[in-house]
Design a protein around this nucleic acid. Structure first.
Lengths: 188, 188
DNA sequence: TTGTATATTCGGCATATACCGAATATTCAG
DNA sequence: CTGAATATTCGGTATATGCCGAATATACAA
Protein backbone atom coordinates (compact mmCIF):
# COMPACT_ATOMS: atom_id res chain seq x y z
CA UNK A 1 0.00 0.00 0.00
CA UNK A 2 2.65 2.44 -0.99
CA UNK A 3 0.26 5.14 -2.10
CA UNK A 4 -0.54 6.62 -5.52
CA UNK A 5 -4.23 6.80 -4.64
CA UNK A 6 -5.32 9.81 -2.66
CA UNK A 7 -6.21 7.95 0.50
CA UNK A 8 -3.05 6.09 1.35
CA UNK A 9 0.08 7.89 2.49
CA UNK A 10 -2.16 10.69 3.68
CA UNK A 11 0.03 10.77 6.72
CA UNK A 12 3.07 11.76 4.75
CA UNK A 13 1.29 14.65 3.14
CA UNK A 14 -0.25 15.65 6.44
CA UNK A 15 3.05 15.78 8.29
CA UNK A 16 4.72 17.68 5.47
CA UNK A 17 1.94 20.24 5.51
CA UNK A 18 1.96 20.36 9.28
CA UNK A 19 5.57 21.40 9.26
CA UNK A 20 4.83 24.34 7.00
CA UNK A 21 1.69 25.24 8.93
CA UNK A 22 3.66 25.36 12.14
CA UNK A 23 6.30 27.54 10.52
CA UNK A 24 3.52 29.87 9.45
CA UNK A 25 2.25 29.97 13.03
CA UNK A 26 5.72 30.88 14.21
CA UNK A 27 6.06 33.52 11.55
CA UNK A 28 2.68 34.95 12.48
CA UNK A 29 3.95 35.22 16.03
CA UNK A 30 7.00 37.15 14.82
CA UNK A 31 4.65 39.72 13.36
CA UNK A 32 2.68 40.00 16.58
CA UNK A 33 -0.23 37.92 15.37
CA UNK A 34 -1.71 34.90 17.09
CA UNK A 35 -0.41 31.46 16.32
CA UNK A 36 -3.96 30.37 15.58
CA UNK A 37 -4.11 32.93 12.80
CA UNK A 38 -0.96 31.54 11.26
CA UNK A 39 -2.14 27.96 11.49
CA UNK A 40 -5.53 28.70 10.02
CA UNK A 41 -3.96 30.54 7.15
CA UNK A 42 -1.75 27.54 6.56
CA UNK A 43 -4.70 25.20 6.47
CA UNK A 44 -6.36 27.42 3.91
CA UNK A 45 -3.15 27.71 1.97
CA UNK A 46 -3.04 23.97 1.36
CA UNK A 47 -6.79 23.47 1.02
CA UNK A 48 -8.12 22.38 -2.33
CA UNK A 49 -10.74 25.07 -2.43
CA UNK A 50 -12.54 27.55 -0.21
CA UNK A 51 -13.44 26.22 3.22
CA UNK A 52 -16.36 27.07 5.47
CA UNK A 53 -16.01 28.00 9.11
CA UNK A 54 -17.13 24.56 10.18
CA UNK A 55 -14.64 22.86 7.92
CA UNK A 56 -11.92 25.04 9.38
CA UNK A 57 -13.05 24.16 12.89
CA UNK A 58 -12.96 20.53 11.87
CA UNK A 59 -9.45 20.72 10.44
CA UNK A 60 -7.95 22.98 13.07
CA UNK A 61 -9.58 21.91 16.32
CA UNK A 62 -10.06 25.53 17.27
CA UNK A 63 -13.42 26.74 18.56
CA UNK A 64 -15.68 28.34 16.03
CA UNK A 65 -15.39 31.71 17.71
CA UNK A 66 -11.64 31.52 17.44
CA UNK A 67 -11.81 30.65 13.77
CA UNK A 68 -14.32 33.41 13.13
CA UNK A 69 -12.19 36.13 14.63
CA UNK A 70 -9.09 34.72 12.96
CA UNK A 71 -10.84 34.99 9.60
CA UNK A 72 -11.66 38.60 10.33
CA UNK A 73 -8.05 39.48 10.98
CA UNK A 74 -6.79 37.43 8.04
CA UNK A 75 -9.24 39.29 5.85
CA UNK A 76 -8.12 42.60 7.30
CA UNK A 77 -4.58 41.88 6.22
CA UNK A 78 -5.60 40.50 2.84
CA UNK A 79 -4.40 37.00 3.57
CA UNK A 80 -7.81 35.47 2.91
CA UNK A 81 -10.78 36.36 0.84
CA UNK A 82 -14.28 35.70 2.08
CA UNK A 83 -16.81 34.47 -0.42
CA UNK A 84 -20.45 33.52 -0.28
CA UNK A 85 -21.29 30.75 -2.70
CA UNK A 86 -24.76 30.94 -4.24
CA UNK A 87 -27.26 28.47 -2.90
CA UNK A 88 -25.23 28.00 0.24
CA UNK A 89 -27.34 30.24 2.41
CA UNK A 90 -25.52 32.33 4.95
CA UNK A 91 -22.55 30.02 4.92
CA UNK A 92 -19.31 31.83 4.18
CA UNK A 93 -16.27 30.35 2.51
CA UNK A 94 -12.70 31.39 2.91
CA UNK A 95 -9.90 31.14 0.42
CA UNK A 96 -6.23 31.83 0.95
CA UNK A 97 -4.51 34.54 -1.04
CA UNK A 98 -1.42 32.70 -2.23
CA UNK A 99 0.31 35.65 -3.83
CA UNK A 100 2.32 37.01 -0.95
CA UNK A 101 3.65 39.91 -2.93
CA UNK A 102 0.12 41.12 -3.34
CA UNK A 103 -0.48 40.69 0.38
CA UNK A 104 2.66 42.58 1.20
CA UNK A 105 1.77 45.36 -1.14
CA UNK A 106 -1.68 45.83 0.33
CA UNK A 107 -0.43 45.59 3.91
CA UNK A 108 2.18 48.22 3.12
CA UNK A 109 -0.51 50.48 1.73
CA UNK A 110 -2.74 50.25 4.77
CA UNK A 111 -0.75 49.28 7.84
CA UNK A 112 2.55 50.70 6.70
CA UNK A 113 0.88 54.03 6.24
CA UNK A 114 -0.41 53.87 9.80
CA UNK A 115 3.10 54.17 11.14
CA UNK A 116 3.98 56.88 8.68
CA UNK A 117 0.89 58.87 9.56
CA UNK A 118 1.39 58.49 13.30
CA UNK A 119 4.96 59.68 13.15
CA UNK A 120 4.45 62.31 10.50
CA UNK A 121 1.64 63.97 12.38
CA UNK A 122 3.61 64.10 15.61
CA UNK A 123 6.68 65.38 13.80
CA UNK A 124 4.79 68.14 12.04
CA UNK A 125 3.16 69.26 15.25
CA UNK A 126 6.50 69.25 17.02
CA UNK A 127 8.10 71.13 14.14
CA UNK A 128 5.47 73.84 14.41
CA UNK A 129 5.86 74.24 18.16
CA UNK A 130 9.63 74.23 18.04
CA UNK A 131 9.71 76.72 15.21
CA UNK A 132 8.05 79.28 17.46
CA UNK A 133 10.54 78.82 20.28
CA UNK A 134 14.04 80.21 20.33
CA UNK A 135 16.10 78.36 22.86
CA UNK A 136 19.14 76.32 22.07
CA UNK A 137 17.22 73.24 23.11
CA UNK A 138 14.48 74.09 20.67
CA UNK A 139 16.92 74.47 17.81
CA UNK A 140 18.57 71.16 18.56
CA UNK A 141 15.26 69.36 18.88
CA UNK A 142 14.03 70.92 15.69
CA UNK A 143 17.01 69.62 13.81
CA UNK A 144 16.38 66.11 15.08
CA UNK A 145 12.73 66.35 14.19
CA UNK A 146 13.67 67.37 10.67
CA UNK A 147 16.03 64.42 10.35
CA UNK A 148 13.17 62.08 11.06
CA UNK A 149 10.93 63.92 8.64
CA UNK A 150 13.53 63.41 5.95
CA UNK A 151 13.68 59.72 6.76
CA UNK A 152 9.92 59.34 6.49
CA UNK A 153 9.83 61.18 3.20
CA UNK A 154 12.28 58.63 1.89
CA UNK A 155 10.31 55.75 3.34
CA UNK A 156 7.22 57.03 1.61
CA UNK A 157 9.09 57.06 -1.67
CA UNK A 158 9.95 53.41 -1.28
CA UNK A 159 6.44 52.52 -0.22
CA UNK A 160 5.05 54.33 -3.22
CA UNK A 161 7.45 52.49 -5.46
CA UNK A 162 6.57 49.08 -4.07
CA UNK A 163 2.84 49.61 -3.97
CA UNK A 164 2.96 50.83 -7.54
CA UNK A 165 4.29 47.56 -8.89
CA UNK A 166 2.41 44.36 -9.63
CA UNK A 167 3.45 41.07 -8.12
CA UNK A 168 4.92 40.05 -11.44
CA UNK A 169 6.94 43.23 -11.63
CA UNK A 170 8.18 42.77 -8.09
CA UNK A 171 9.14 39.18 -8.78
CA UNK A 172 10.88 40.20 -11.98
CA UNK A 173 12.74 42.93 -10.14
CA UNK A 174 13.94 40.42 -7.57
CA UNK A 175 15.27 38.16 -10.30
CA UNK A 176 17.17 41.08 -11.76
CA UNK A 177 19.11 41.75 -8.59
CA UNK A 178 22.60 40.42 -8.93
CA UNK A 179 23.85 39.04 -5.66
CA UNK A 180 27.53 39.80 -6.00
CA UNK A 181 29.01 36.80 -4.29
CA UNK A 182 31.44 38.66 -2.06
CA UNK A 183 34.31 39.06 -4.45
CA UNK A 184 37.84 39.52 -3.18
CA UNK A 185 38.44 43.28 -3.30
CA UNK A 186 39.25 44.51 -6.76
CA UNK A 187 42.08 46.88 -5.91
CA UNK A 188 44.92 46.22 -8.28
CA UNK B 1 9.98 86.09 29.67
CA UNK B 2 9.53 84.90 26.18
CA UNK B 3 12.52 82.58 26.15
CA UNK B 4 15.82 82.65 24.24
CA UNK B 5 17.73 81.37 27.23
CA UNK B 6 17.78 77.64 27.76
CA UNK B 7 15.72 77.62 30.93
CA UNK B 8 12.60 79.48 29.93
CA UNK B 9 10.13 78.03 27.49
CA UNK B 10 11.36 74.62 28.54
CA UNK B 11 7.74 73.65 28.60
CA UNK B 12 7.32 74.31 24.90
CA UNK B 13 10.26 72.12 24.02
CA UNK B 14 9.16 69.47 26.46
CA UNK B 15 5.65 69.22 25.04
CA UNK B 16 6.95 69.15 21.48
CA UNK B 17 9.31 66.34 22.36
CA UNK B 18 6.63 64.58 24.32
CA UNK B 19 4.45 64.42 21.26
CA UNK B 20 7.17 62.71 19.27
CA UNK B 21 8.07 60.43 22.15
CA UNK B 22 4.48 59.31 22.42
CA UNK B 23 4.34 58.66 18.70
CA UNK B 24 7.43 56.53 19.07
CA UNK B 25 5.75 54.58 21.86
CA UNK B 26 2.77 53.99 19.61
CA UNK B 27 4.99 52.94 16.75
CA UNK B 28 6.88 50.58 19.03
CA UNK B 29 3.55 49.05 19.92
CA UNK B 30 2.78 48.54 16.23
CA UNK B 31 5.92 46.47 15.97
CA UNK B 32 5.00 44.37 18.98
CA UNK B 33 7.37 46.12 21.35
CA UNK B 34 6.52 47.66 24.68
CA UNK B 35 5.51 51.27 24.88
CA UNK B 36 8.19 51.82 27.50
CA UNK B 37 10.78 50.79 24.95
CA UNK B 38 9.48 53.35 22.49
CA UNK B 39 9.37 56.12 25.06
CA UNK B 40 12.84 55.42 26.35
CA UNK B 41 14.22 55.44 22.85
CA UNK B 42 12.53 58.78 22.30
CA UNK B 43 14.11 60.23 25.40
CA UNK B 44 17.50 59.09 24.21
CA UNK B 45 16.79 60.36 20.73
CA UNK B 46 16.39 63.91 22.00
CA UNK B 47 19.03 63.71 24.70
CA UNK B 48 22.10 65.89 24.34
CA UNK B 49 24.47 63.04 24.95
CA UNK B 50 24.61 59.52 26.32
CA UNK B 51 22.49 58.95 29.41
CA UNK B 52 23.02 56.61 32.31
CA UNK B 53 20.38 54.23 33.62
CA UNK B 54 19.68 56.50 36.55
CA UNK B 55 19.26 59.52 34.32
CA UNK B 56 16.85 57.54 32.19
CA UNK B 57 14.93 56.50 35.29
CA UNK B 58 14.85 60.14 36.32
CA UNK B 59 13.54 61.34 32.96
CA UNK B 60 11.12 58.52 32.29
CA UNK B 61 9.69 57.65 35.70
CA UNK B 62 10.09 53.97 34.91
CA UNK B 63 11.67 51.65 37.45
CA UNK B 64 15.32 50.91 36.99
CA UNK B 65 14.60 47.29 36.18
CA UNK B 66 12.23 48.37 33.44
CA UNK B 67 14.80 50.72 31.97
CA UNK B 68 17.50 48.09 32.18
CA UNK B 69 15.55 45.50 30.23
CA UNK B 70 14.38 48.12 27.76
CA UNK B 71 17.98 49.03 27.08
CA UNK B 72 18.76 45.38 26.44
CA UNK B 73 16.06 45.08 23.81
CA UNK B 74 16.90 48.45 22.26
CA UNK B 75 20.47 47.31 21.98
CA UNK B 76 19.37 44.01 20.49
CA UNK B 77 17.63 45.85 17.69
CA UNK B 78 20.45 48.35 17.22
CA UNK B 79 18.40 51.32 18.33
CA UNK B 80 20.84 52.24 21.08
CA UNK B 81 24.48 51.74 21.71
CA UNK B 82 25.81 51.03 25.13
CA UNK B 83 29.05 52.67 26.12
CA UNK B 84 31.19 52.68 29.24
CA UNK B 85 32.92 55.96 29.75
CA UNK B 86 36.39 55.74 31.32
CA UNK B 87 36.60 56.75 34.93
CA UNK B 88 32.91 56.24 35.40
CA UNK B 89 33.23 52.89 37.07
CA UNK B 90 30.64 50.32 36.18
CA UNK B 91 28.18 52.97 35.10
CA UNK B 92 26.91 52.43 31.58
CA UNK B 93 25.75 55.08 29.18
CA UNK B 94 23.29 54.75 26.39
CA UNK B 95 23.14 56.67 23.18
CA UNK B 96 20.43 56.60 20.54
CA UNK B 97 21.25 55.49 17.03
CA UNK B 98 19.66 58.27 15.00
CA UNK B 99 20.27 56.79 11.59
CA UNK B 100 17.14 54.73 11.09
CA UNK B 101 18.28 53.36 7.77
CA UNK B 102 21.16 51.76 9.53
CA UNK B 103 18.82 50.35 12.16
CA UNK B 104 16.52 49.00 9.50
CA UNK B 105 19.39 47.43 7.63
CA UNK B 106 20.72 45.65 10.68
CA UNK B 107 17.28 44.52 11.80
CA UNK B 108 16.67 43.12 8.34
CA UNK B 109 19.91 41.21 8.51
CA UNK B 110 19.18 39.60 11.84
CA UNK B 111 15.45 39.49 12.50
CA UNK B 112 14.38 39.43 8.88
CA UNK B 113 16.53 36.40 8.36
CA UNK B 114 14.82 34.68 11.26
CA UNK B 115 11.57 34.56 9.34
CA UNK B 116 13.31 33.49 6.17
CA UNK B 117 15.15 30.71 7.96
CA UNK B 118 12.07 29.48 9.78
CA UNK B 119 10.04 29.24 6.62
CA UNK B 120 12.82 28.04 4.37
CA UNK B 121 13.70 25.19 6.67
CA UNK B 122 10.11 24.03 6.94
CA UNK B 123 9.61 24.35 3.20
CA UNK B 124 12.69 22.34 2.38
CA UNK B 125 11.73 19.61 4.76
CA UNK B 126 8.23 19.50 3.34
CA UNK B 127 9.61 19.46 -0.18
CA UNK B 128 11.73 16.45 0.64
CA UNK B 129 8.88 14.52 2.20
CA UNK B 130 6.44 15.35 -0.55
CA UNK B 131 8.92 14.45 -3.23
CA UNK B 132 8.95 10.88 -1.99
CA UNK B 133 5.18 10.54 -2.05
CA UNK B 134 3.09 10.01 -5.14
CA UNK B 135 -0.48 10.93 -4.40
CA UNK B 136 -2.39 13.69 -6.10
CA UNK B 137 -2.46 15.51 -2.79
CA UNK B 138 1.28 15.29 -2.54
CA UNK B 139 1.76 16.74 -6.01
CA UNK B 140 -0.56 19.65 -5.28
CA UNK B 141 1.06 20.39 -1.94
CA UNK B 142 4.48 20.20 -3.49
CA UNK B 143 3.56 22.79 -6.05
CA UNK B 144 2.36 25.14 -3.35
CA UNK B 145 5.47 24.58 -1.33
CA UNK B 146 7.56 25.45 -4.37
CA UNK B 147 5.60 28.66 -4.90
CA UNK B 148 6.55 29.79 -1.42
CA UNK B 149 10.13 28.81 -1.95
CA UNK B 150 10.22 30.98 -5.03
CA UNK B 151 8.78 33.86 -3.05
CA UNK B 152 11.38 33.54 -0.35
CA UNK B 153 14.19 33.38 -2.88
CA UNK B 154 12.96 36.70 -4.20
CA UNK B 155 12.63 38.15 -0.71
CA UNK B 156 16.20 37.18 -0.01
CA UNK B 157 17.31 39.00 -3.11
CA UNK B 158 15.69 42.18 -1.89
CA UNK B 159 17.09 41.76 1.58
CA UNK B 160 20.55 41.23 0.15
CA UNK B 161 20.14 44.34 -1.94
CA UNK B 162 19.03 46.51 0.96
CA UNK B 163 21.55 45.21 3.44
CA UNK B 164 24.30 45.77 0.91
CA UNK B 165 23.70 49.49 0.69
CA UNK B 166 24.82 52.21 3.06
CA UNK B 167 22.36 54.63 4.61
CA UNK B 168 23.54 57.29 2.22
CA UNK B 169 22.99 55.04 -0.75
CA UNK B 170 19.52 54.12 0.48
CA UNK B 171 18.63 57.75 1.03
CA UNK B 172 19.96 58.66 -2.38
CA UNK B 173 17.99 55.83 -3.93
CA UNK B 174 14.82 57.12 -2.29
CA UNK B 175 15.39 60.59 -3.70
CA UNK B 176 15.79 59.10 -7.14
CA UNK B 177 12.38 57.49 -7.13
CA UNK B 178 10.02 59.52 -9.22
CA UNK B 179 6.57 59.52 -7.72
CA UNK B 180 4.55 59.75 -10.88
CA UNK B 181 1.68 61.90 -9.70
CA UNK B 182 -1.04 59.78 -11.17
CA UNK B 183 -1.03 61.12 -14.69
CA UNK B 184 -4.09 60.84 -16.89
CA UNK B 185 -3.42 57.81 -19.09
CA UNK B 186 -1.07 58.54 -21.94
CA UNK B 187 -2.91 56.68 -24.71
CA UNK B 188 -3.06 58.88 -27.75
C1' DT C 1 -42.55 36.82 8.17
C1' DT C 2 -40.99 32.82 10.52
C1' DG C 3 -37.80 29.24 11.14
C1' DT C 4 -33.38 27.42 10.53
C1' DA C 5 -28.72 27.39 9.58
C1' DT C 6 -25.00 30.01 10.17
C1' DA C 7 -21.85 33.84 12.00
C1' DT C 8 -20.48 37.03 15.55
C1' DT C 9 -20.18 38.72 20.07
C1' DC C 10 -19.61 38.29 24.96
C1' DG C 11 -18.19 36.62 29.59
C1' DG C 12 -15.08 33.90 31.75
C1' DC C 13 -11.04 31.34 32.63
C1' DA C 14 -6.19 30.31 32.08
C1' DT C 15 -2.01 31.97 30.57
C1' DA C 16 1.20 35.63 29.26
C1' DT C 17 2.97 40.31 29.66
C1' DA C 18 4.47 44.86 31.67
C1' DC C 19 6.02 46.85 35.27
C1' DC C 20 7.69 47.35 39.94
C1' DG C 21 10.78 46.77 44.09
C1' DA C 22 13.75 43.78 46.45
C1' DA C 23 17.37 40.55 46.13
C1' DT C 24 21.41 39.20 43.75
C1' DA C 25 25.27 39.69 40.71
C1' DT C 26 28.87 42.34 38.54
C1' DT C 27 32.37 45.73 37.88
C1' DC C 28 35.86 48.69 39.19
C1' DA C 29 38.74 51.38 42.65
C1' DG C 30 41.57 51.06 46.16
C1' DC D 1 40.51 40.92 47.98
C1' DT D 2 37.11 44.04 49.77
C1' DG D 3 33.77 47.41 49.46
C1' DA D 4 31.02 50.75 47.13
C1' DA D 5 28.57 51.78 43.10
C1' DT D 6 26.05 50.10 39.65
C1' DA D 7 23.45 46.61 36.71
C1' DT D 8 20.66 42.57 36.22
C1' DT D 9 17.60 39.14 37.67
C1' DC D 10 13.68 37.45 40.11
C1' DG D 11 9.13 37.13 42.28
C1' DG D 12 4.91 39.26 42.68
C1' DT D 13 0.91 41.88 41.11
C1' DA D 14 -2.11 44.10 37.97
C1' DT D 15 -3.48 44.12 33.38
C1' DA D 16 -3.89 42.20 28.76
C1' DT D 17 -4.38 38.33 25.61
C1' DG D 18 -5.88 33.83 23.64
C1' DC D 19 -9.09 30.74 23.56
C1' DC D 20 -13.44 28.55 24.65
C1' DG D 21 -18.59 27.78 24.92
C1' DA D 22 -22.89 29.96 25.47
C1' DA D 23 -25.73 33.68 24.13
C1' DT D 24 -27.00 36.71 20.58
C1' DA D 25 -27.37 38.45 15.96
C1' DT D 26 -27.79 37.80 11.02
C1' DA D 27 -28.96 36.11 6.57
C1' DC D 28 -31.41 33.30 3.67
C1' DA D 29 -35.34 29.90 2.36
C1' DA D 30 -39.80 28.97 2.31
Amino acid sequence: MTNNDGTSAGDEVATAREEVVEAMATTAEMYGMKRSVGRLYGILYFADGPLSLDELVERSDYAKSTVSTAMTTLERYYFVQRRSLPGEGKRAFFEAERDWWSVMRRVLETEGQREVVTMTRALESAERQLGETNSEQATDSLERVRELQAYYRQIEQFVDLLTGLSSEELAAMAEMIETETELPSDDR
